[in-house]
Amino acid sequence: MDPAEIMETAEESEKRVLLEGGKPALASLFLQYRDRLERIVCFRIDSRIRGRLDPADVLQEAYIEIAKRIDEFVTRSDVSFFVWARQRTVQTLIDMQRRQFRERRDINREVRFSADPDDQGTGTSLSIARFLIDQITSPSLAAVRAEETTWLQEALNSMNEIDREVLALRHFEQLTNQQVSEVLGLSPTAASNRYLRAAARLGEMLSRLNSQSTHDGR
């Protein structure tokens, strides 16, 4: 069975459920994806305001936003409900963070990277970096793991933006290829190729590192 096909029909049924069931159906649909959305919020949230902004609050606000705009989704959107809800959630997070920082910035780009060193947004590289830093401070983390983590951070930073984003969506946000393609506006084939290329590139870097350390060890 082709998973993409299964998903297709599942998405159609989601739309139908929303059309027929109205808000109550929306609430229950949203709850289905809540955990995954929370994961994404946790990943993208700026660690500097994590103390002030609860992921649960973000989801709360995101839900209100989603409920408000559900007609947009039902009538116009060509992506799946999850991808659409994710976009709205990320947007909500950006808005809330911006409010926290009281800064006016361009927040319309979905994929953003730290070309600007002052950027406090939700760009993938920053999210990964922040996230990895958190990892290191975690008490349960072994020294080896810390080294690995630091390396990964550097490796990812050396990659181009789209590659980094594809890897983040697939692994940190745990999106499927289909969803990644919808988020990035690529064809599934292109998204898949992009992902494999990025992963292979990272793998090459990793094997170079391994041979290097073996070499050093001698």
């Binding site: 975690s138 990964l152 890897l167 692994h171 940190f172 992963a199 292979a200 793998g203």
Partner: peptide, 26 residues
């Protein structure tokens, strides 16, 4: 080999912290 090695690494690193309530988070 190349792809899976990086998957292993990325998944290992991301596993612990990001599962909101699913993982035991330490």
């Amino acid at each position: 080999r190349a792809v899976f090695a990086s998957i292993e690494l990325v998944e290992r690193v991301s596993k612990k912290e990001l599962d909101p309530r699913g993982s035991t988070a330490g």
